[in-house]
Amino acid sequence: MAATLAENDKFAEADAIYEKLTKKFRAQSDEVWLLHAEYLYSSGREEEGRALMTRALECLPKAKHVALISRFASLEYTQGDQEKGRNLFENVLATYPKRTEVWSTYVDLSMKHAEVEQTRHVLERVTSLPLSIFKLRPFYKKWIDLETKHGDEKSLAEVKKKALEYLTSLKDILDE
């Protein structure tokens, strides 16, 4: 209902409904917080969206914090300040470096909205982590796709070489 009101330029009514929803479900549902944030970011009120994230983190259980910050970072990256979104991702990944779902979201957004060099740097960092082949395989695939579209033969060969080196290091470990 709030989204419909916002589409019809009845922002005061939409604000009131979103406030009631976040007040009523503040400790249970992260989805309500995210819907409210999407509304604020899409209407150009990024500062209010950032304040909403702080309120959401105070109300929701800690188990939902990483996913919530990641979603807010995505909103910030796409609709707000890209640098602030990048900082949110970097802060989460500094604390939880093995959260591949956060890395995947960060890489996808970087591929879509950032410069190629910046995306290469993010992919290089994630592929240097001590993760299993099953977790790293999608990142090498994304990196190869990136180099196929935006790189040259030399950069593509370097990525393939790094992937092969990783596989041979795993083989060496398994042979021991």
Rank of each mutant, 00 (worst) to 15 (best):
P130T: 08
P61I: 09
K64T: 06
L68A: 07
D81S: 08
Q79G: 09
D30Y: 10
E176D: 14
E46F: 09
L167N: 13
Y18A: 05
T148A: 14
L93K: 04
S104V: 00
S70H: 04
H121C: 10
S42G: 06
A73S: 08
T100D: 09
I133V: 14
T100W: 06
L57F: 07
K23D: 13
M53H: 10
V126S: 02
D145W: 10
A6V: 00
E90Q: 10
R120H: 04
S29D: 09
V107W: 00
S110I: 02
S104I: 00
L60E: 07
N87D: 12
I173C: 06
L156N: 11
V159K: 01
L35V: 05
R137S: 13
L164Q: 14
F134D: 12
E31M: 15
R45S: 09
K141N: 10
L60D: 06
R50T: 04
L75M: 08
R125G: 01
Y39F: 12
K62W: 08
E158V: 03
T119H: 03
T148F: 09
Y140W: 02
H150K: 15
R71K: 15
L129S: 02
A3R: 12
C59L: 12
N87R: 13
D30N: 10
L60K: 08
L109Q: 12
T100N: 06
Y106W: 07
V32H: 07
I144H: 03
K20C: 07
K135P: 01
Y77N: 02
A94H: 11
D145M: 14
Y106T: 02
P97H: 00
F72G: 05
M111L: 14
Y39V: 02
D175Y: 13
Y166C: 03
V126A: 03
K112M: 11
K64Y: 06
T78D: 13
H65I: 08
T78N: 11
A27T: 14
L156F: 12
L136M: 02
K161R: 11
Q118Y: 06
T78V: 14
R125W: 04
H113V: 00
L40D: 06
S29H: 05
E47V: 09
Y166T: 05
K141D: 13
A27W: 05
L164F: 13
A27C: 03
L93G: 04
L75E: 01
K149P: 05
Y18S: 05
I69P: 04
K20W: 07
N91G: 10
Y39T: 00
F25R: 13
L35G: 15
E38M: 11
A63D: 15
A16D: 13
E19A: 15
A37Y: 02
T22A: 06
E7T: 04
V107L: 08
E13C: 01
K162E: 10
S128L: 06
T78M: 14
T22E: 08
R86P: 00
M111Q: 14
E13R: 01
L170S: 06
L5Q: 08
S110Q: 01
A63F: 10
A51F: 11
H121P: 00
E48L: 11
I17Y: 00
L57N: 06
K23I: 04
L170W: 11
S42R: 15
L156W: 09
N87W: 02
P130L: 05
K112R: 15
H36L: 07
T105W: 03
D145L: 12
H65A: 08
A2M: 04
G85T: 02
R26W: 11
H113L: 12
D172G: 14
S132P: 06
S110R: 01
E46Q: 13
